[in-house]
Each structure stands twice: as C-alpha cells, then as structure tokens.
Design a protein around this nucleic acid. Structure first.
Lengths: 154, 154
DNA sequence: TGATCACGTATCATATAAAGTTACATGAAA
DNA sequence: TTTCATGTAACTTTATATGATACGTGATCA
C-alpha cells in the first residue's frame, strides 16, 4: 500500500476549515482534497471524538473547527487519528528465543524507538497556529490572493 | 500488510552464518528463520551483489559471509536490500499547488526527514561485529551453550 | 555420464491496510 | 415532508511483503 497520508490529509482539511467562517461539508472538503466525502468523515471521526472539530447534520451543516489553534499540536491530531503506525520497518519477531535474534532486535529496536520518539517529539513541537502562520506567510509572499486562501477550485 | 522485516531477517541470517564455518543452504537458513528458502534467496540477492555474501551451487554449496564484520554497518545492509521504505506515513501530495498543503508538507516533511535521518544515522553507527559481540555476551550471560550458538532447532 | 544438490528466478497465491465507492439510516433545516 | 448532510457498514481497489510452486542452471559425486 502507499504511505499512510491521513495525518497529512486531515491537517490540510483543518487549515482549510480554519480559513472559513461557516461549516464546510464533507462534500466540499472532499473536492478540495480530491477524494471522497466518506474518506473525510472517516478521518474526521477521531477528531470529533477528541473535541477538535464539530459536525452538524442537515441544511447548513458540515464541519467546524472548534479547538484553539495555539494549543493543539500535530501530536494531538496524530493521536486523535488513532496513532497510526509510524515506521514501515520492524523486527521479525517480538520476543524471540534465539539469542542472535535478541541481539538483532535490541539494536534495531533501539534505533526504531529513537526514530519514532523523534518524530513524535517534532509533532509535539508544532501547533496548528504555526502551520496556519506559515500558510499566511506563503500567501503574502506569493503576492496577494489568487483565490482567497487556497489555490483549489473555489 | 505487516511491517517490513527484511532487514531484521537478513541480519539474523548473517549473524547465524557468522557462527558457522561452512556454507549454509537456503533450506537450513529458512528452517531457522521459520520461512521459505526462496525468501532467503530473495533477500540475500542484494547482499550478494554488494559482495557481502557469496553463494555456491551444487553439493556442499550454500551461503557464506565474506565481508568484514568490523567494517560493515547496518546501513550498508539496509542499502544492499534496496533501501526499503522507512516510514509508514507520508505527505498526501509531493508538490501541491495549494498553499495550505505546502505549509503542511513543509512541517511534516521536515519531521519525516529528521526521523529518517536519525534512523539511518543509527544504522550507520552499528557494525555487524557489534551485533555479534552482543550475541556472544548474551550467550555467556545465559551461562554457556544450550545449543551451540542459537536456540533454534539444530 | 547421469543423478542429485543448491542456487536463480519467474509466477502465482496470501495477507494486510489505506483509500475509494456505494448504499442506506438518522437527524436537522427549509 | 422534502432535502441536505452526517454516521456507518460493506465492498472494491491498490500496493507490497511474504509464502509457495515450478523449473532452469550449474556444480558435485557416484
């Protein structure tokens, strides 16, 4: 399978929502993301449970971001997604009887753990507000608005 | 699919080979690894091309380790395997036009790159000799030989 | 020389998980 | 009560590691 892009995708969605005043439908978000509304609802479900977003049914319904961009970090979003697998590699066996494999596992496992820990630490250092600020900086640098806040089809 | 365990597996095989004087057949190694001979040949192919192991056909044939355990590092083995994917996560799109996604990609990409770099650095710090030494330390600590150098079925 | 052994490799099957899709129930607003 | 939008289940698709079968090649041994 291709690399898991749920975190990337859901952050994209969140920042778009942050630029909008009213609720955004899964349909609208899906178009901007070039995907399916059900996929949007699927990844948003975890965020809703954690109270980062709110969803409303019926006319005028859709998704709204209801968290503080300054305090919510990528790490929080990652966890709301259900802490997806970070590494594509792993040890063959978890608790092998073979001493050779134990030695291999110890060395590899340490390296794997370090890499995972670093990634999670980075995620813990970045707030949604920082991402939003970076987006606005890029918008300014590009020299004004091409489309209001994105380059997606309106 | 489950996490890629080729590096873990091939290191296991290599250390076993290092404990043996003569060539080991794919059949024998596969039994120790609880897998299929073809899988062994498959992962060993890259190591053979890099000159880390040698294979011989016919009677008395099999696999022999022909590299210097002191100088070959996990990083070398990783690369001989064809540099398998390290992270299970990634950005949705590589070069998005959307500025929001560019901001997301920049932040996530940096974190991903850092984690990958750390893992590769760790791999570059560990020699096969170190793994072998750790194995022998475990063997001593266990208090002598249960089976000569492993706990696999002979 | 011929039988056997072991690798080299193509091919197909299996398993897993994300992503895409369809279908339908639920609830809210017009 | 009709329409809209979410909530979810179920199925399909896709990608990739792994497992397994089959057969060719070359080397050794009787």
């Amino acid at each position: 399978m291709k690399r898991d892009s749920r975190l990337s995708g859901v952050l994209h969605v969140l920042l778009h929502m942050a630029e909008q005043s009213g609720p955004q439908t899964s349909e609208t978000l899906a178009r901007a993301m070039d995907t399916n509304p059900v996929v949007i609802r699927r990844v948003m479900a975890g965020l809703r449970e954690q109270g980062f977003v709110h969803s409303e049914k019926g006319h005028g319904g859709g998704w709204t971001i209801v968290c503080d961009l300054e305090t919510v970090r990528l790490r929080d979003i990652y966890e709301a997604l259900g802490r997806p697998e970070i590494l594509a590699m792993g040890n063959r066996t978890d608790a092998p009887g073979c001493l050779v494999e134990q030695a291999v596992n110890a060395a590899l496992g340490q390296a794997f753990d370090d890499a995972e820990a670093l990634l999670l630490r980075r995620f813990g250092e970045i707030t949604l507000a920082q991402l939003s600020a970076d987006f606005h900086a890029r918008l300014t640098e590009r020299g004004g608005a091409i489309t209001p806040e994105t380059s997606h089809a309106a």
